[in-house]
Structure formats: C-alpha cells, structure tokens
Simulated scan of single mutants.
Amino acid sequence: MAVFAVLMLLMFFGSVLSTDESIAVPCSINDIDCLGKSLEKFLEKTHKGIPAWNIVAIDPLVIPSFDVVFDNEGLIFKYKNLTVTGLRNQQLTGFKMDTNAKAVVLTTKADLDIVTDIDVIFSKSSKTLSGHYKSHASVLGTATYKYDLKTDEKGVTHFQVGPETITCKVVDAPRVELNPEFQQTLSNDADAKAFSQEKKHELREKAFCKITEKAYTYVVHNIREAAKAIPSTAFFTNIE
C-alpha cells in the first residue's frame, strides 16, 4: 500500500508539472500573434478545469441560477440551470498591458450558445411566465484588471491578479429559440405583447451581454488561479 501511495503521488505531481510546462506560451507583451496562440493553448489546457489549482471548468460552463433585472421595464429574467458553451474557442482581439500602472485590458471574441430555463417576471403585475430558452450570439468580452508581482518563499515570481471589471458588446443580434409552449404563452400574454419587437431585441441583447459578463468572470478566475500556480515567466518573457 505504501508503494502504491507513493506511485500515486508521483503520478499526481508529474501531471501537475506537465500541465505547468505547457499551459501557456511565453510571449512578449507586444506580440499579439504569440499572445493569441498562448490564449488558445491556455483555454485548451484549462477549459475542463484543474482542481489541484482551483481552476474551474468553463466549457461547458454551468451556472445554477442568475438574474438579470430591468428596472425601467419592470422585468426580471430569472435563469436556472444556465449552460454556456463556446468559451473554449475565444479569439484574442485586443491586449494592452501597462507595466507602469500594472494594468491589463484583455478583449476576446467568442461565439456563445446559451441553454437555460427561464422565468420572466413582470414586477408590476407579480406575474411569472416560465419556459425553456436557447440563444446564440457572437460577442466581444473585455476584462480589465490590475496586477502585481509577488515573489514566493522559493524565490519564484508570480502574478497576483486583482479584481476584474467585465464589459460586453454583442457583434450580431442574438438568435433566440423558445420552446413552443413558452412561445405561445408569450404571444398570448398582454404584458408581453406590450413590448415592441425593437424593445424585445434590445432586452435580449442586454440579457445576453449580462450572461456573457458573468461567464467571463470565470475565465478571469482561471487566469488568476493559474497565475498563482506557475511563474510569471510562463506567461511573459519581458516582465520584471
């Protein structure tokens, strides 16, 4: 049993070290092509999660519940069992790193699919309409965060990633599919019919972006946790 335990520990640490070595491509902060390849590799290696590093699975990403509130319209979209796919295939479209301010602005493009149960709550009439919802859209997600560099007790320097701010822009209008019963319910409901088609498109776009912003927080979480686990030189070649 003791030999078996030792072998299991060696296998575990060996897998962590191999992940460490290949989780990203070290790049100059100004080499956008290299950075794009590094992001691609990072997402490939981490999208299923790495529990030993507290890196969570992001594709598919399952969010048990999430609310989007539209105060001006008196609406709440309450999502349940929300599943997002497509984060694995993000493409880098912009990267700025200010080494003086120690600030990063990271923008990626993603084609995201959302599948969820939804309660549409009309606040004024206290009415809830429920159904199943699918949506697809291309989005640009931008994460802005500060960082610091910390040297651990072994003399290894790591990035320390601060709190993030996420913004989203929908590239094209979300394609939405509702289950037939839900579609029929909305078509016959007086409160739902009071919204113009233009307003409905606006609400769908805003809701998709809110979900995207929530999803991107998990992406930044994984960057933050990876930065704790591996040296700063695994990400960048010209950071001091």
Results as ranks from 00 to 15, higher is better:
6 V>Y: 10
9 L>F: 12
11 M>C: 14
18 S>H: 08
26 P>S: 10
26 P>R: 09
26 P>I: 02
29 I>M: 03
33 D>T: 15
36 G>H: 08
41 K>Q: 15
42 F>D: 02
46 T>V: 08
48 K>I: 07
48 K>Q: 14
49 G>E: 09
52 A>P: 01
64 P>A: 07
64 P>S: 07
72 N>M: 01
72 N>A: 12
73 E>K: 02
74 G>V: 01
75 L>M: 06
77 F>R: 01
81 N>I: 01
81 N>C: 01
81 N>Y: 04
83 T>A: 11
86 G>M: 06
86 G>I: 05
87 L>F: 07
87 L>M: 11
88 R>P: 00
90 Q>V: 13
90 Q>P: 00
92 L>A: 04
95 F>H: 13
97 M>A: 13
97 M>T: 05
103 A>M: 11
107 T>W: 09
108 T>V: 15
109 K>S: 14
116 T>K: 02
117 D>F: 02
117 D>Y: 03
120 V>R: 01
121 I>A: 05
123 S>T: 13
127 K>E: 06
128 T>L: 05
131 G>H: 07
136 H>R: 12
136 H>G: 04
141 G>F: 00
143 A>F: 01
149 L>R: 12
152 D>Y: 06
152 D>E: 05
154 K>T: 12
155 G>Q: 07
158 H>Q: 05
162 G>Y: 05
164 E>G: 10
166 I>F: 02
168 C>F: 04
168 C>N: 06
169 K>V: 09
170 V>N: 07
172 D>S: 14
179 N>V: 05
179 N>S: 11
187 S>N: 15
188 N>W: 00
192 A>F: 14
195 F>S: 08
196 S>Q: 08
197 Q>D: 14
200 K>A: 08
200 K>Q: 12
202 E>T: 12
204 R>S: 15
210 K>T: 02
211 I>R: 03
211 I>C: 02
215 A>N: 04
215 A>Q: 04
225 E>H: 10
227 A>T: 11
229 A>M: 03
232 S>C: 10
232 S>A: 15
232 S>E: 07
234 A>M: 10
236 F>C: 11
237 T>Y: 08
239 I>K: 07
